[in-house]
Design a protein around this nucleic acid. Sequence first.
DNA 1: CGGCATATCTTGTCAATGGCAAGATATGCT
DNA 2: AGCATATCTTGCCATTGACAAGATATGCCG
Lengths: 206, 206
Amino acid sequence: MTGARGYHHGDLRRVLLTAAVVAIEESGPAALSLRDLARRAGVSHAAPAHHFGDKPGLLTALAVEGFDLLAAALQTGDSLLEMGVAYVDFAVRRRAHFEVMYRPDLYRVDAPEVVAARGRSRAVLRSAVADLPPGPGAVGGVAGDALAAWSIVHGFATLWNAGALPDEAGDDPRAAARVVIRRLFGSRVDARGRAAPPARSPRTPA
Amino acid sequence: MTGARGYHHGDLRRVLLTAAVVAIEESGPAALSLRDLARRAGVSHAAPAHHFGDKPGLLTALAVEGFDLLAAALQTGDSLLEMGVAYVDFAVRRRAHFEVMYRPDLYRVDAPEVVAARGRSRAVLRSAVADLPPGPGAVGGVAGDALAAWSIVHGFATLWNAGALPDEAGDDPRAAARVVIRRLFGSRVDARGRAAPPARSPRTPA
DNA sequence: CGGCATATCTTGTCAATGGCAAGATATGCT
DNA sequence: AGCATATCTTGCCATTGACAAGATATGCCG
């Protein structure tokens, strides 16, 4: 672990991953080139292969990191509303990770590390929705609430990142997300659900 | 316009576009290869370039077609609920088009034909939302309603296509979408808005 | 300290791709 | 008939992903 640039780079794996984030933010995941990453890191064109095997391998590592970062980001919001805002905020600020995570044709979605990390982030969302006081039109129960919440927040984030939203949406994704989420859940969503009701939530997220 | 396979193919442009749809459905838009399309169409590897210039050019044409198909599909539903279901249905059945449409790094989003076609599909959604009876928690007015509706429907469709939804979502995207949409708008959404109120909607989409 | 197994990185190579240029062939217009 | 143009082909080059073989550093064990 020298960190210097001898024959052994020191922390090439990490350097390549952050270089990938930069490159994806510049030109999207489709245009990602392993050789370009190697150039940015100052190593030979075949060095990345040792750490990640191939391109899907690198993006798999990036997706795993993304799901873990997402789980951590979601933990910070204590109400479902704030958790939704955190989801959108994650998608916008860690755009490269987010774009890869939901593009199954780019990496190995079934890799065990991916399944585990995705499960972790999903558990966080689930526990927050489970603590939500039941609303009037609760057709599908908790699963329906979770699906609706996830959908609206994911859709908003995706459309925002794609630049598909008209100008009226403003330039603050967090504020705009807040309005949209409140429209789904009304004021139910402001309750600090995850702490207030003593019973109802059997799963504490690890 | 012979349709036969002489030197002139007859309808190569259309053949290439549908071949692209097939290829994208098989392996995703990232793996799309112009040369592979040419092979499928039985022409030389440089033939596609004449019709579309380059790869982004081909995907631009596909996106335009997609936005027009989407606008047409949305017209069929007469309530906002059914329009949302139609959106999801479009995303699932015309998956290749849909995946390209919201991937700005793959094609020329600012091409005038794209802007026009996207505007057409957006107008259809807008007119339906405008006719919706105002609900209780209407914070942002019509624009907020439209944003929320579009977000939830787009997010659901995207997650469905990405295979990100857990099994509880079932195997019928239309039914699951219906549940989710109703959770956003309640019973307001069942009103046959676009026909009932005589005023309010000045734009008849072409 | 010496020596070997291993991890890490490099160099060299190959097939496939996107894109360009130049040429061949069909079509339409007058 | 004859020319302009649209359509398609062949040939070429730089870049890329992937693999193989070799070079160099690191750790381990005596």
